[in-house]
C-alpha cells in the first residue's frame, strides 16, 4: 500500500520509538556489565569510562558457566535430534497410512499442542525418582522430547501431505520398502520443515527454566537458566557480576538471532500456522 509523506513520517516515528524501548534495556545490560558498580549507578546509559572485565572473570570462574553452557548444549542437541527423528518417523506414518487408527493417533498427538506438560510435573518427579535420573541432565531429555512431539508432528505431517503422491507410488513400484522411502526420499525433502521444527523446539528447550528448577540441584548438572537464577540470587547486590551473568546468557542467543532472524521468526511462530 502506498503512503503519503506524513503517514510515512508518523510510521517511522512510532516504530523508531518502540525500537528505542526494545534496545534500551539490552544496551544498558551490555554496556553496564563492563562498568564498576559505582559507575552503573551514576551513569547507567553511557559507554564505560572505567572499563572492567571483573564481572565476567568472576562469573566464569566462580560460576562454572562453562559447565552450564555445555550441559544446555548437550541437552538441546540430543533432544532435538530425537525430536526430529521420532517426529519425522511418526509423521511419515500418519501422513501415508489412511485408517481410523492413524486419525486417532494424530488427534492424540495434536491434543498436546495446547496442554503444557508442566501440569504433570508431580508425576514426572516420581518417574525420574523411579528411574534414578533426578539431578542428571538425562532427566530433562525425555521430557523435552515428549513435549516436542505435538508441534513436530503437526508441522511435519502437514508438510509430507504436500509432497506429490506419485513420487511415493513410483518408489513403491520400483520395490522400495517404506524404510527406504523414508530415509532416502522423505528425509531429504523434509529439510525446510525440519529446520522450522528444530528452531521452535531449540528455543523452548534452551530457555526452559521450569524442569531444571524442579529436577536438578547438583552443580555439575545445571543448565544456563538454572545457573543464571542461582548466580543472580547470589550477586543481587553486585551489579557488575549480575549483569555479566545475564549478558553471558543473552548475547549468544541474540547474535544467533541477528544472523538467522528470518528462520527464527518462522520457527517461533510455527505453532500458530494453520495446517
Amino acid at each position: 500500500m502506498k503512503m503519503n509523506r506524513t503517514q510515512k513520517l508518523l510510521t517511522h516515528f512510532i516504530l523508531a520509538t518502540w525500537t528505542l524501548i526494545v534496545l534500551f534495556p539490552v544496551w544498558t545490560l551490555i554496556v553496564d556489565s563492563f562498568k564498576p558498580q559505582k559507575e552503573i549507578f551514576s551513569s547507567p546509559f553511557g559507554l564505560p569510562q572505567h572499563f572492567t572485565l571483573a564481572g565476567y572473570k568472576s562469573v566464569w570462574v566462580n560460576g562454572n558457566f562453562g559447565i552450564y553452557f555445555l550441559n544446555t548444549f548437550y541437552v538441546t542437541i540430543i533432544s532435538l535430534a530425537l525430536i526430529v527423528f521420532f517426529g519425522s518417523l511418526a509423521s511419515y506414518a500418519l501422513a501415508k497410512w489412511n485408517s481410523k487408527a492413524s486419525t486417532a493417533f494424530y488427534i492424540f498427538f495434536i491434543a498436546g499442542l495446547m496442554i503444557p506438560v508442566r501440569l504433570g510435573t508431580i508425576d514426572l518427579i516420581r518417574i525420574m525418582q523411579f528411574l534414578s535420573l533426578q539431578d542428571t541432565i538425562w532427566s530433562l531429555i525425555p521430557v523435552y522430547v515428549a513435549m516436542g512431539m505435538p508441534i513436530s508432528i503437526f508441522i511435519l505431517t502437514a508438510f509430507i501431505d504436500t509432497l506429490p503422491k506419485e513420487m511415493f507410488d513410483a518408489a513403491k513400484v520400483d520395490g522400495a520398502s517404506e524404510w527406504r522411502i523414508y530415509f532416502q526420499i522423505v528425509m531429504p525433502l523434509l529439510r525446510p520443515a525440519i529446520a522450522t521444527v528444530a528452531i521452535f523446539n531449540m528455543m523452548k528447550i534452551w530457555n526452559d527454566f521450569w524442569f531444571p528448577l524442579v529436577f536438578i540441584r547438583a552443580e555439575k548438572s545445571r543448565t544456563i537458566s538454572l545457573g543464571v537464577s542461582l548466580l543472580f540470587g547470589q550477586y543481587r547486590t553486585d551489579w557488575t557480576r549480575a549483569l555479566s551473568t545475564l549478558s553471558l546468557a543473552a548475547v549468544p542467543i541474540l547474535i544467533l538471532y541477528i544472523l538467522l532472524s528470518r528462520e527464527f521468526i518462522k520457527g517461533l511462530t510455527a505453532g500458530a500456522v494453520k495446517g
Binding site: L82, F85, F86, G87, L89, A90, F105, F108, F109, G112, I115, V117, L119, G120, T121, I122, D123, L124, I127, P142, V143, V145, A146, M147, M149, P150, I153
Partner: peptide, 14 residues
C-alpha cells in the same frame, strides 16, 4: 518411538 515417549513422559503424567 514417538508414541512411547509421548505417552510415558507427557500424556500419562498429565
Amino acid at each position: 518411538p514417538a508414541l512411547l515417549t509421548y505417552l510415558i513422559f507427557m500424556a500419562a503424567p498429565l
